[in-house]
């Protein structure tokens, strides 16, 4: 690599590193499963680098990356939609647009999550983290909690709902309904 190339590469890495969690969360909101988000993120990271020439210094990297992400997610959905249950393109496009605009609030909620999870009793917190850790096996986690798999999924829904209430409050949001 020439010195200019190296510098450009460094610059990209700095920006990408800073915004990757937000881009990933954005993608997660648009695809059915967390593993799908990993898939699409790989693609997006490559495209961002390839198109980095078109990115102007001083521009909003996150906004630019969200645009690339939206395009890649829609392409991915079109590809996978034939044999997977995915949301309508129209719905996803709306979600992409609205959540990109709402990202500052959503980011505050994500930041608040750690505090909220910290308030969950130890045993339940362990279960929750085990259910979400990479390569987790829900059946095993369910079993060790003494619940049926269906019952465990119900419990997970309740936990997410409860945590959403908490992060809304913690992020200075009103509690709805």
């Amino acid at each position: 690599m020439s010195p200019a190339e190296t510098e450009r590469h460094r610059c990209f890495l700095r920006l990408f590193t800073a915004h990757e969690p937000a881009v990933r969360a954005h993608v997660r909101r648009l695809v059915p499963a967390r593993a799908d988000a990993d898939d699409v993120m790989q693609e997006i990271s490559v495209v961002l680098w390839e198109k980095f020439d078109a990115f102007r210094q001083g521009e909003d990297f996150r906004r630019w990356a969200f645009g690339v992400a939206r395009f890649e997610v829609l392409a991915w959905l079109r590809d996978k939609g034939r044999d997977r249950l995915v949301l309508d393109e129209e719905v996803v496009a709306k979600l992409a647009e609205e959540t990109a605009a709402d990202e500052p609030r959503l980011e505050r909620q994500r930041e608040a999550l750690e505090v909220c999870v910290g308030k969950v009793p130890r045993e339940q917190r362990d279960l929750l983290m085990r259910a979400y850790e990479p390569e987790s096996r829900i059946q095993e986690v369910a079993q060790s909690s003494g619940r049926s798999v269906a019952g465990f999924y119900q419990w997970l829904h309740r936990m997410r709902r409860m945590l959403l209430d908490c992060v809304r409050r913690a992020a200075g949001q009103e509690v709805n309904g």
Partner: peptide, 11 residues
């Protein structure tokens, strides 16, 4: 879904 991805990151 935002909570879901933040939980995965935290886990």
């Amino acid at each position: 879904l935002n909570v879901d991805s933040a939980l995965a990151a935290l886990a």
